[in-house]
Nucleic acid binder design. Structure first.
Lengths: 353, 353
DNA sequence: GGTTTTTTTGTTAACGTGCACATTCCTTTG
DNA sequence: CAAAGGAATGTGCACGTTAACAAAAAAACC
């Protein structure tokens, strides 16, 4: 290599320093503060001054650095969102609704997902907190002890979504998964079924679908209340459930005696898997086996017979969450009263029952 | 311990000041720099010192502020990802794969989506750039002039994904949508069909599904090459396409003379809509109308008959993108050579053709 | 034992912005 | 016309961290 290797000849692609607010102010012949104002509170700057500033900005290609702004203003503009996974249409809808509500106020969503693992949730949480979000949205109401402590210490508003059963850390927007299970059971009972099964995932290390588990619990309690057996409530496989889960669990269901007449799956994905496997095995749905799901995923409406399921408006859930956050962060809305919103759920009666 | 009692009585809701690295250093009896090192490069700090620091950190509940760190180190740890939408399983998979590849290197994903609008893309882009991402991943190869300028000026590596046709701004990971269209056409032609249709969305203001449009173009060219008519290539409705799109376009297709034998939809969603509408109308698939989709969405494999489609491994696409970014950002990998990776595509032959 | 090298820790000065306060320059008012 | 008030702009500094360099302590060497 060359003798001046120590300092290195400037590489061909010398990285040009990005223009700062100081460069803009110099070009526009104003103070930095005026530039800042021209961007943040334009009406506080006289029109011709503002025009000069704007011109300098576009000439230089100046783009403000929000890390610096955050440090100074102590406002990051981040809202943290923790989901189990992105590859679930309902959770994606939450993110969607949340963004819609938050966009107008110029907040950015910082999304993390934990694959249904509480350990991972905690790691992600630590990471998120380093970004100083102004509010944190968590899925579910079950967290590790340390996670809760971390959240509490952070002194940031926390909204738990999609599970209203247990006592929330602070605020909550969602529905009761327990109630969803009860609703499903009562629906099937009302239809005259007596040998009723339910399927969900089993717990494996720290990978748990607590929300699915809540649905099963509500389902079981409703069965008991009606004097029916809970022997057919099956916890099988690892979360999250899938078509394959449904297909493999269908085999178990169909082998049981006495003959199972109806089954509730904690997710449409699993329910659809069951329907498909039945089709493959020549078992008629709903005649031989009625199938009910949860989540109202698109494909449930598309299969044959279309799937009876429970619908929750996740997009609205996200929007309501966003609105709540805006209230919480508005100067007058900081009354610290824990808020709780139930978005409810509805049975979507279709052909599979 | 005197507080900074510049102003008199503390407000009722005095927000406890978060501990800073200075608080930690004081408690541990070391300099701030040592604390920083204990966190960033632990092996550079002697073990007992590190232990004291760690203890102080957990006692105080100290969480570093990355905005401050970013400002000083000029590294934000952000990778920006712009998607058309999150509520599309394939794009969600991209985010998933990308995160997987990036997690080990401690990068955070900053996700934005633009609803297929180029105006919105530009707004989102400006916003993202204020966060100083170290790399930017964009979906598609078509952007507004100003967006391209903004990107160029930002001096940040740009990776375009999911479209390999046009000349990329810089790096690219994806597949050729044009080729996907051609492949579909040739597949249908090889099956013996002659009256072949294709359906996609039409352009509406700046809301365009360019990738779908590319597929249609490839499809048309392959038809022409085979001496077949492109009269049945239909652009209908607004992007993104959906079941409803398929259902409504099915009516148009079935009314056409001469009788259309096969149809390719730019998305499985639309294709499934067509199949369902056919079912409703008593049109047999594939006997009366063969249907082919694109995207290999879950539900395509679940309907009856299962959908013949084109599969692209979007998760792998995300992972490859992540790996490329890691190379680009590694000190030795900055050779500035534009890179391009084709992840290819495969026809998934199922019952609908 | 004294020198050199290595390891460990400390000091100083940014990084780019916005808040709090100060100043200037105009209007308004009695 | 002096005093008071308001609008527009400027000054100084703090925000919390890390890079670069400096110094001290420990280890290695001859």
């Amino acid at each position: 290599m060359s003798s001046r290797a120590k300092h290195g000849a400037p590489r061909a692609m010398e990285r040009a320093r990005r223009p700062t607010i100081g460069d803009v102010s110099r070009m526009a012949g104003v103070s930095r503060m005026t530039v800042s104002r021209a961007l943040r509170t334009p009406r506080a700057v006289q029109e011709d001054t503002r025009a000069r500033v704007t011109k300098a900005i576009s000439r230089l290609g100046y783009v403000p650095d929000r890390a610096a702004g955050s440090l100074s203003s102590r406002r990051t503009g981040f809202i943290a969102l923790m989901l189990p996974t992105l590859t679930n249409a309902n959770f994606a809808s939450v993110a969607h609704g949340l963004t819609e509500a938050l966009r107008q106020a110029d907040y950015d969503l910082l999304i993390a997902y934990n694959e249904y693992s509480l350990d991972e949730e905690e790691r992600q949480l630590r990471n998120l907190l380093e970004r100083r979000p102004e509010a944190i949205v968590l899925t579910g109401a079950v967290h590790r002890r340390d996670s809760a402590r971390l959240l509490l210490a952070s002194n940031v508003p926390v909204v738990e979504i999609a599970d209203l059963t247990t006592r929330p850390l602070e605020h909550a927007v969602g529905f009761s998964n327990y109630e969803a299970g009860r609703t499903a059971a009562r629906y099937l009972i009302a239809k005259g079924f007596r040998n009723i099964a339910a399927v969900g995932s089993s717990t494996e290390r720290d990978v748990v679908d607590y929300r699915g588990e809540e649905r099963l619990r509500g389902f079981e309690d409703a069965l008991r209340l009606a004097g029916l057996t809970t022997d057919f409530v099956i916890r099988h496989g690892r979360a999250p459930v899938s078509y394959e889960h449904g297909a493999s669990v269908a085999g178990i269901l169909l082998g049981r005696k006495p003959k199972i007449e109806a089954v509730f799956a904690v997710s449409d994905l699993s329910a659809v898997g069951i329907v498909m496997e039945c089709q493959r095995l020549g078992v008629r749905v709903p005649k031989d086996l009625a199938v009910m799901g949860f989540g109202d995923f698109d494909l449930g409406g598309v299969i044959n017979p279309p799937l009876t399921t429970i619908h929750v408006d996740f997009r609205a859930l996200g929007q309501r969450t966003g609105q709540m956050i805006l209230e919480l962060l508005s100067p007058d809305g900081a009354d610290d009263m824990p808020r709780s919103i139930d978005v409810g759920l509805t049975v979507v009666a279709r052909g599979s029952v």
